[in-house]
């Protein structure tokens, strides 16, 4: 029952209240800001699965996001595929690339993995930038068709909003189930002590690869959404600094926390928009917020919590820890 209430509050907020408020404050621009926040929420939630839950710090997430975006853009412009095909294909292609690229680095731990993913992310960026015949290089790909379905809805800011919102909710659902379940416990065991996890019968490499694959899938879908909603992508959108932005969102919101990921995206993308004078100093704000949250809030704003528990807590439905041991699936 509580579960049902929390879910309906969440859906109501995302699907009715938020778009209502956005159109009330003047639509267009704010819808685009919210769409960007939505895309980055998906990215941060997905990166969180690798970094927060499985404990592998990834500094190359923007690269995988770029693979998804370019896959979508090329499929949509060259082959004229509709969005309901490009998005899942982008996800799958990115996941496959993610696995292939990350397979050799799975043995690495800690900073070595972090730096290896930095290398992978930059390899992807350099390739996008220089493989001019395929990606059009620094010119980028423009005139990517928006999200539309003949006879039902056409490309507009509101369509974009709903597409991003629905996919973000789906991502939260899938990633939430992966994180807040016994499977999530297995991933956390890998994070806490991989050797010990192996001696308890967990297939550590398998778990790492699976979490990487799921994370890359959603990064790819987020890239696809970005391509469809903005209509133009260039390699500059998928640089190292974007990986850092994603990392900062995760750190601020709380590593391993799905609502934290969304909150991080809202803070780091929303604040500069709302507080205009800060807008110019966006990356400085990102750096400063990241620095101070590592220093003062090592667990981030929300720690390792699930979406529903945050909603529940807000409505005073305090939850008894002992009743919630184990995962009801």
């Amino acid at each position: 029952m509580r579960r049902l209430i929390s879910i309906s509050i969440l859906l109501l907020a995302v699907l009715l209240v938020l778009p209502g408020v956005l159109s009330a404050v003047g639509g267009g621009y704010w819808f685009r800001v919210t769409t960007t926040i939505g895309v980055f929420s998906i990215l941060t939630m997905s990166a969180n699965l690798i970094t927060g839950t499985t404990g592998l710090m990834s500094l190359g997430h923007a690269g995988f996001y770029g693979i998804g975006a370019y896959t979508t853009a090329l499929l949509a412009t060259k082959l004229h595929w509709p969005f309901f095909l490009t998005l899942p294909v982008a996800g799958v292609v990115t996941a496959v690339f993610g696995i292939l690229l990350a397979l050799p680095t799975m043995r690495l731990i800690g900073i070595y993995f972090a730096v290896a993913t930095l290398g992978l992310g930059e390899i992807i960026h350099v390739t996008l930038l220089n493989w001019v015949d395929f990606t059009r290089g620094p010119m980028g790909i423009s005139a990517i068709p928006g999200i539309s379905l003949d006879g039902l809805f056409s490309a507009s800011d509101i369509t974009n909003y709903y597409a991003v919102a629905i996919i973000a909710l789906l991502a939260a659902l899938v990633l939430g189930r992966l994180t807040h379940s016994y499977y999530g416990n297995a991933l956390r065991a890998v994070r806490e002590d991989d050797q010990c996890a192996a001696s308890m019968g967990l297939n550590v490499v398998g778990l790492k690869i699976q979490s990487f694959a799921f994370a890359c899938f959603f990064a790819g879908v987020a890239g696809g959404l970005w391509a469809h909603t903005t209509g133009y992508i260039s390699p500059g959108d998928f640089r190292f600094s974007e990986s850092i932005l994603i990392l900062a969102m995760m750190v601020v919101g709380g590593l391993g926390s799905i609502p934290g990921a969304v909150l991080g995206a809202v803070i780091l993308l929303g604040l500069p928009e709302v507080l205009r004078p800060i807008g110019d100093y966006r990356m400085i704000v990102v750096g400063a917020v990241m620095f101070f949250s590592i220093l003062f809030l090592p667990r981030g704003l929300l720690g390792e919590t699930s979406v529903l528990s945050v909603v529940r807590r807000q409505f005073g439905l305090a939850w008894d820890r002992t009743l919630n041991l184990g995962w009801r699936q």
Binding site: M57, G110, I111, S241, L247, A248, I284, G287, M290, F291
Partner: peptide, 25 residues
């Protein structure tokens, strides 16, 4: 320790962003 390594990895990253962006400003 691992925790310090990762914390300082992130903090030095944050400082590097701030310094670079300040220089750009």
């Amino acid at each position: 320790s691992k925790a310090i390594r990762e914390a300082t990895l992130l903090s030095s990253l944050a400082v590097s962003i701030i310094v670079r962006e300040l220089a750009e400003k």
